[in-house]
Design a protein around this nucleic acid. Structure first.
Lengths: 344, 344
DNA sequence: AAAATTTTTTCAAACGTTTGCATTCGATAT
DNA sequence: ATATCGAATGCAAACGTTTGAAAAAATTTT
């Protein structure tokens, strides 16, 4: 059986009765190589499908041109937008992105980070998993820091750690959303909150809370119900909201998915959107413009976050020794559509 | 400035005035190492944060434990489901997935494949880009074949190439969808088609066409309009359909996104779904159950595809020399919801 | 034709790890 | 006291490539 071991420089050298160095130089168009030798070797290499073993080069140069992207999930529009942004900047520079999905699992996250370091990844973009965040774990990050591998946080904050960070201004996005509802005449605004503990959830919740405070509206516990970001998780909570003695006249969902789930329940009850209940989401996912009614939402610039995060990485890389830690916070944008339109 | 070069086995050896071999054996719990030596070395290694350089091991063992996943996009639910499936099987086996997004671009696909080979990736899962497919390119695959790197096609067929393949039975899925519409009483069924040339588009179109044929219904050119899988791309085509002299009483969308876009246009015209127009999509994306009205669709088992593809890869890997090429086609499932419910 | 110069090629080391085989060092048996 | 044995450690090669310095070969100059 033909073992089909990849052709190496040594193989080519044997074939031409020359040294590996000559072959290497010929393949790399080194000037100190005879024109004929070069041509012959290059031609032969192409013929036999020689492909340089990057693994050996990585070992030699201590450069792998690989970056890790560690995220809790890739199911949602936002994450893929971030990855696209990273890709846009980093792919042309020759970097390969190694995308690792932790499923919100601490152990998996830890394993991935360790693996990325072992593989001599040159930088890591990390959105910590919920489990990690909840438990306040951070030891697995120590080794990344210790190794001085550039570490960029995307999206989720991690207070105790000083690294660069690119996040969206969830707080003001939420604030603007609720303020919009208030100024348009809604008075009793509920919030379908994200999982406790996550920065994204908490920031948006804070925006909701502080906006109500600003307008001297009491915060009612029964109007704040948790979800897990998924459509399904909005169903029961929304029903509970509608069954209240004084049901909300508007709902602010922690993301578009949840808002869409809520809309469904409301329409099923024969209520009108935005007539009876106003709805607002978060993310500005592509579908949000085409639901019925279309969904007012807060645009979250995922692609830009990816591009900014890339920039932060490159800064660290070219930075002089000690990293300059930057903290980029991108603004959101309120996108007003049908689900919140009501003449005040 | 502290250069913070990663600690190597040699560093540790120097510290203990012993040879690298001893350190290596100590770290790997080799039996022929003195208990004290072992303990001391292991402790010290932990202290200084030693992490074994997998790059050097990869070179030595010619094993990288890395697999490439080359897909045109990761924006949609289906692709992420496939990746999740791959992940489910392969992550526990120690494989790292290197996800590469080609954006339907041939050159990028070619570059990625070449890079993956150079990096000595042990297997490649490929869903060819539209450009590649359109142009019928295949040379970039030759080197993969030549190297005998296991290559598994996911989702998109590539006739001339014999490799293993895991796809969904789009044809029969589409057929069932249209048949459902017909048996429920719809007569004038339009199709919002996917981009020309893509297997997915063409197979679903064929299913549509053949089903109509089976029921002796003439195929009308004006009822078949192209889209690009995205919500927005359904808007204008749907308007055109509704403006026809004899507008369709049902629309079969090539995917859920397109179907949702169509629904939006129809509802905007004051028409009832499913009363005036029945709608059916494809994919069974999470959102499809919660649109208003909920969307009848064809379930596409992305996760299963990923798992099957993994199985095919493992078979090739353990297979004896010459690969056994398998061709897995998974069935779809019709999910009947509101958008097609009409008493016949 | 020898010396000087230029062109072309080879040598050897390095990257970090593992591993078969050889070596060293005590200790035990003769 | 010496041979024998076992345990512990070291040596050296290997993986594939690059690269500065040295060597060899070819060319030009004297």
């Amino acid at each position: 059986m033909n073992s089909s071991r990849p052709v190496t420089i040594k193989d080519i050298a044997r074939r031409f009765r020359c040294s590996p160095s000559t072959v290497s130089r010929a393949l790399n168009d080194h000037p100190a190589i005879n024109e004929d030798t070069r041509k012959n070797i290059q031609e032969y290499a192409r013929e036999v499908g020689y492909q340089r073993n990057e693994v050996s080069l990585s070992l030699l140069n201590k450069k792998t041109a690989t970056l890790g992207v560690v995220v809790p999930t890739i199911g949602n529009y936002y994450e893929t937008a971030v990855i696209e942004g990273l890709h846009t900047i980093l792919q042309p520079l020759g970097y390969t992105l190694n995308i690792c999905v932790t499923n919100e699992n601490y152990l998996l996250e830890k394993e991935y980070l360790s693996k990325l370091l072992s593989n001599r990844t040159e930088g890591i973009f990390l959105s910590v998993s919920q489990e990690t965040y909840d438990a306040g774990y951070y030891e697995h990050l120590e080794s990344v820091i210790q190794r001085k591998t550039p570490l960029i946080f995307i999206d989720r904050e991690y207070e105790d750690f000083e690294t660069s960070r690119a996040t969206v201004d969830d707080y003001h996005g939420a604030f603007a959303a609720v303020e919009h509802l208030l100024t348009i005449g809604y008075k009793n605004i509920a919030h379908l909150k994200g999982p406790n503990g996550l920065t994204v959830s908490e920031q948006r919740f804070k925006g909701y809370r502080d906006c109500l405070k600003k307008y001297d509206i009491p915060i009612k516990e029964e109007l704040i119900i948790n979800t897990n970001f998924k459509v399904e998780s909005a169903i029961v909570p929304t029903k509970r909201l509608l069954d209240l003695d004084s049901p909300p006249d508007a709902i602010f969902g922690v993301n578009d998915q949840v808002a869409i789930g809520a809309m469904r329940v409301i329409l099923d009850r024969g209520l009108k959107i935005p007539g009876d209940v106003g709805i607002i989401g978060f993310d500005n996912s592509p579908i949000s413009a085409y639901t019925y009614p279309s969904l007012t939402t807060v645009h979250r610039p995922g692609r830009k976050i990816g591009m900014e995060a890339s920039r932060l990485f490159l800064n660290q890389l070219n930075g002089s020794g000690d990293f300059v830690h930057e903290n980029i916070v991108l603004p959101t944008e309120l996108i007003i559509r049908e689900s919140s339109l009501r003449i005040s």
